[in-house]
């Protein structure tokens, strides 16, 4: 329990540092929110008035306190381009992206674990080569390329899945899954490579351990030995890598969601960046950082369940 509190404390500390960095960076950028709203050709007097009313003339510290205070009290400000409260926007989009992230990670794990185990069991044989080459193929091509391939094959030629768009899960959950599938598959192929390599190398190590020989000497079948005895030991490091990849994934969805017209966090971030929607950028970065850190905390906690040797305290 102290461990969890400890970790939560460090998450809060990190989030605080992130607010500092984000705030600093967005303030160093040329132009300010008033300029964004009124345009560069606007009347200087009107601009000055807007600045005053937005509080942009306040000392930076006051502006920062105002922003963080807003984050804490639920007043996340308004998006300049969508003319909507940011909190409302984000809470819609995060659901869409969560579906995509979970699905792509699920696909990546579902492919990587069997492939990695297969390679480890047949180490240094042709199966190993096939496994590592296919994993390498997945990572060596950028994921938007896979996105294009997916659209061509599954949407254009086969017509199995829609090529773009997003359906709200509260309206049609199946529709959400259908729309998320192709971008998730494209992302999953990119994620798969590291996970396959990780599964292979941990499984290789585990399979050479004495307890595997002991399990075989007990007469257990190879299936039990590999899929229960060995995999139960190898899964921890794989999940840790998967947790770290969540952060990377939030970068990848910016491209992928835009490519598929899938209106989630990634798409939102892209729009915000494109239109210099500074309040939206600040809040989005904050949310993504928070999600990534909480995921990694969850992975660490999951580790305790997987491996009894790890005690928290």
């Amino acid at each position: 329990m102290t461990y969890v509190l400890n970790r939560l404390l460090s998450v809060i500390l990190t989030l605080f540092l992130i607010t500092l960095v984000t705030f600093a960076v967005t303030n160093i950028l040329p132009g300010d929110v008033a300029m964004m709203i009124m345009g560069t050709q606007s009347n200087p007097e009107a601009l000055a008035g807007l600045r005053e009313s937005l509080g942009l003339n306040d000392p930076l510290l006051v502006q920062y306190a105002h922003w963080v205070g807003g984050l804490l009290t639920g007043d996340w400000g308004n998006s300049l381009i969508f003319k909507k409260p940011i909190l409302e926007l984000l809470s819609q989009k995060i659901v869409a992206s969560a579906v995509l992230v979970v699905m792509s990670m699920g696909i990546a794990l579902a492919l990587a674990i069997p492939l990695g185990v297969w390679a480890a069991v047949h180490r240094d044989k042709w199966q190993d080569t096939v496994s590592s080459s296919s994993a390498l193929l997945g990572v060596s091509l950028p994921d938007f390329f896979w996105g294009i391939v997916m659209i061509l094959v599954f949407a254009r030629w086969l017509g199995w899945f829609p090529s773009s768009g997003f359906v709200d899960p509260s309206v049609d959950f199946l529709g959400t899954l259908q729309h998320a599938f192709l971008p998730a598959l494209a992302l999953g192929l990119g994620l798969m490579a590291h996970l396959t390599r990780m599964t292979r190398s941990t499984m290789t190590g585990i399979l050479s351990q004495e307890f595997i020989r002991v399990a075989r000497a007990k007469g257990l079948s190879e299936r039990t030995v590999i899929w229960r005895y060995a995999l139960a030991n190898a899964i921890g490091p794989v999940i840790t890598i998967a947790g770290l990849q969540i952060g990377y994934l939030f970068g990848s969805i910016i491209v992928m969601e835009s490519l598929f017209g899938y209106t989630g966090m990634g798409w939102l971030t892209y729009q915000a960046l494109l239109n210099r929607d500074l309040p939206l950028i600040q809040d989005t970065v904050f949310v993504i950082a928070g999600v990534v850190m909480l995921t990694n905390l969850a992975v660490d906690l999951l580790y305790v369940v997987i491996d009894p040797r790890i005690r928290l305290g």
Partner: peptide, 28 residues
């Protein structure tokens, strides 16, 4: 064959190894 060996191993022939520290599965 593998099936017969599965029935013999651990059943009619038991085996102990050198390294007690690593002979047991750490997560079971």
């Amino acid at each position: 064959n593998a099936q017969v060996m599965g029935a013999v191993r651990g059943h009619e022939i038991g085996m102990i190894f050198q390294e007690p520290m690593t002979a047991l599965n750490p997560v079971f």
